[in-house]
Structures are given as C-alpha cells and as structure tokens.
Amino acid sequence: MKPMLPQSFQTSALSEVCVPTAAGRLSARVIRPAIVTAARPLIVLHGISRNAERLAELFRPEAERSGRLIVVPHFDAARWTHFQRPCRAARPDQALIGLIEHLAAAHPELDGAVDLFGHSGGAQLAHRTAMLYPQRFGTLHLAAAGWYCLPDTRMPYPYGLGTRATDPAAAAWLRRKRATLAAYLGRETHIYVGTDDTARDPALRKTRPLDRVQGRTRRDRAHAYRAAFEDAARAAGITPRVTLTELPGCAHDVEQAIATAGLAARVVRGRDS
C-alpha cells in the first residue's frame, strides 16, 4: 500500500552556490524542503540547453511534496564548453563529485548516496559519472540521452567499453570503467524517452557505427541501452534492475515531458503525477 502524499505539505528554500572544485568552478541551485525526509537527495542534470534555472523551478514542487533535497548544477557555457562526458578537455564528473562533497558540509544528507537524474546531455553525464563512481549513487534516471557508453565491448570507447588501438588515451577511461562496471550494473536504473523523440536533429550525434549498434534515434537508443544494460548485468551475474518508460506524446523536450508526462514526479516520487 502506497503512503498517501499530500500535494504539498511544506515550503522550501532555494539557494544558489558556486563551488570551487579541482576540475573548475561549478554553480548549483539547492532546493531544501523545510522538512527533509530520509529519502535520498536527488541531483538534476540539465542538457545542452543548460536550463538549470528552469529545471529548479520545475522540480521545486516535487521537492516540497517529497521532502527530498534536490540539487540542480549549472554547467555554464563560459566555463563548461564540454560537460556531457568526462574527457581530457573537461572533467564534469570530478566537478559534480566535488560539488556534492562541498555541499555535504551544509547538507549532511549529501554525505550518503544520492539519486541522479539527467536529461539529454545531462543523461549522458549522469550515466558516465555513475559508471566511474557507482557507489556514490542510488537510483539513476536517464532521460533521452543522445547516445550512451554501452556497458559492453561492441563499440570502442567512448561509445562502449571496447578498445581501439589508435586511441591510447581511451585506455585510462576503459581501465577505470571496467574496474567499476559490476558495481554500476547493480544500480537501479530508469530510462525514459519520449514516444516522439525520433527526430535526427542537428544535436543528435550521428555516425554509421553508432546508428548501427545503438540505433538511429534517441528512442531506439534508449531501447538499445536497456537491452545492453540487461545483458551486461546478467553476464556479470547481476540481476538487472533497469526499466524503460516511454513518455507518451513527448518529443525531445524536458519541459514537455515534465508538464505532460509527469517526468519530475516519476523521478522524485517514483510514481505517475
């Protein structure tokens, strides 16, 4: 029996912080309900529109309804040209972990595992960061990622964990992700994608191998990733805990997904709005 949740039983405080990390400065909005429950805090990662402010507005009512602390980082364009994946040019993963560590001093709830949500480019960063630091995260919510780092060797890094002799720089990332793969595959993971997220728009990465293995659209790729995740988990002797939810009538638009398909409520409260 599900507990009854009032629509809103409290208020929240929203604060903005800018945290210096070893990977660079990262700002964030912190939504702290007046009464914080024992539920894990949630980190919300924006996509290439960098709409952190809007996401904070959209997730704030859910923080108040659930009593969950929510942090919405903002990878601003000036400092974070690259933020979708850790690479030589930028280490958003390190900044994200540094942000959580820094905020934990003021918000002890962040000292434990946190849940992680990302949309589009944010979903790319979310699953790649969780692959590197799986123990730091509880449940992953990956919405409409353009492409993935598959947890198998069918594609060379960064599309998967396969090797490519011509890319020695990938060796370090492969070493790290292979070492943490089993822990990653044990995470509870929810994948979301709009039923209409099928456009091959300019922001979608398109290469022949990527199209062939992961699919031609975000919708196809979400399905491919779920299948790959399940197969890799089973191969590792882990019972996969991965779901895929298609958001009816939604294209590649997080605001639409929240407004019409209750995405924020699904993520924060684990239920339909």
Binding site: R40, P86, D93, Q94, I97, D111, G112, A113, L132, Y133, P134, Q135, R136, F137, G138, T139, A172, W173, R175, R176, K177, A179, T180, A183, R187
Partner: peptide, 24 residues
C-alpha cells in the same frame, strides 16, 4: 596526476574492495 584523479582512485578503491559506508 592519474593517481590524484578521483576516477582512477575510485577504481583502485573498488578493486581493493572498499565499501561505501553510506551506500544506497
């Protein structure tokens, strides 16, 4: 710089059997 990299160090920690005490 590799050793000081949290991703590298985290992989070492998990390989070494470290357990996150505040696990999910």
């Amino acid at each position: 710089s590799d050793l000081a990299d949290p991703a590298e160090a985290n992989a070492m920690a998990l390989r070494a059997g470290a357990r996150w005490p505040r696990a999910a």
